[in-house]
Design a protein around this nucleic acid. Structure first.
Lengths: 208, 208
DNA sequence: ACGATAAATCAACACTTGTTGATATAAGGG
DNA sequence: CCCTTATATCAACAAGTGTTGATTTATCGT
């Protein structure tokens, strides 16, 4: 006994930890979850650091500011985006159903994407920068796809903007405000109910 | 800057001001606008007080805490609510149009109401209390009206929840995210495009 | 006129936030 | 081995937050 071997003496928790840490990614994951759950303001650096099992100062050393950390979180995988774009291929008769499904599954699918989007949405409500990002997502990505299928640009912009906004509203109702009837309803059933309405907005007549 | 360097010495701006001030209402108005514009967290007592041309401590003396001030702001006038309820009277064929119009005009009408709703929506994203309030607004008020017109309760709840959420989404797109095509479009045109979709959600078939 | 009360400001507290500089430990190349 | 670099913690700052107690000035009932 009295032998101070190797195991009993790591008193100071300071300094670099042994092995490959992967801490940077852990911080990013914690940040994404926190931003999505609490919004930008309420998601403090200290909480994020704590979630990642790390000191707050380290977060600042990796990502230089809270803003840059947020920016690092705000990205949607190209794969998810292409899945949305593909939704526009096919018979126009089922356009609403495909667009609705693509949207809702993106917003409720892989946390890597859905949490980013939720965070973006939450932040868009309090931060102009995030609002601009979401605006671009809603506008450019969808408009690019919808435009060729509709008559004139202005019409296409309004229709696609409305469709995106309404689908976004469904997400807000389900995930944020958590209207009981919506939050409990399963995704497939929601899609079945919403799709015809989106179809109406996208292709339905209004000039009648 | 803006230092008033007049030579007369109007002694100490302290103490009660002459005349009936109406300051209490001014604080409430400033708070409503700030909460709607900045959200709960970013709307500081000091900013609200400054908007009302008053010291921050006075705000605390009138409304005892920031929470109570917020609660005081969160109320929609009975008149506005009854206007919404009336929207459900009439031929079912035009139900979507009336509900859409009632909603959108409420959300974009008298600032007394629309700012409260915007503030509620913004706050719902960061504060569970506000989320519950908005949930109740979306659910109870509308469900009570829609229920008699639809077959079973579950169906009615889901349909009315979806309609409200989608309309809320349109507001978010127009007022918060500010999707250009939507923000620029005038209200009447938006109603004309959205109404058929809401009609579809409320009364349209799904079992087909 | 007087005293109670309401309306207003001031100064400060206790706390949290993002951020920074110093320091400590590990990893890796020469 | 040493020296650089990446990883980690600690302590503290400056700014901003909601909130409070003391104080000053006007209003109103008696």
């Amino acid at each position: 006994m009295t032998e101070d071997g190797n195991s009993t003496l790591p008193p100071s928790r300071r300094g670099r930890r042994p092995g490959a840490s992967g801490t940077r990614q852990a911080i990013l994951d914690a940040a994404r979850a926190r931003f999505a759950e609490d919004g930008y303001a309420a998601a403090t650096i200290r909480k994020i650091a704590s979630d990642a099992g790390v000191n707050a100062a380290l977060v600042m050393q990796f990502y230089r500011s809270k803003d840059e950390l947020f920016a690092a979180v705000m990205s949607i995988s190209p794969g998810a985006l292409s899945r949305i774009e593909q939704a526009f291929d096919g018979p126009e008769q089922a356009l609403g159903e495909r667009v609705t499904r693509a949207h809702l599954t993106l917003w409720e699918g892989d946390p890597r994407d859905s949490e980013s989007l939720l965070a973006m949405l939450r932040a868009a409500i309090s931060r102009p920068q995030a609002a601009a990002q979401l605006r671009e997502f809603i506008q450019a990505r969808l408009l690019k796809q919808i435009r060729p299928r509709l008559r004139d640009d202005h019409d296409a912009a309004v229709r696609s903007g409305l469709a995106s906004s309404m689908l976004m509203g469904v997400i807000v109702g389900r995930r944020i405000v958590q209207v009981p009837a919506l939050a409990e309803e399963d995704l497939e059933s929601v899609i079945r109910r919403v799709a015809p309405a989106i179809q109406t907005v996208l292709t339905g007549g209004m000039e009648v």
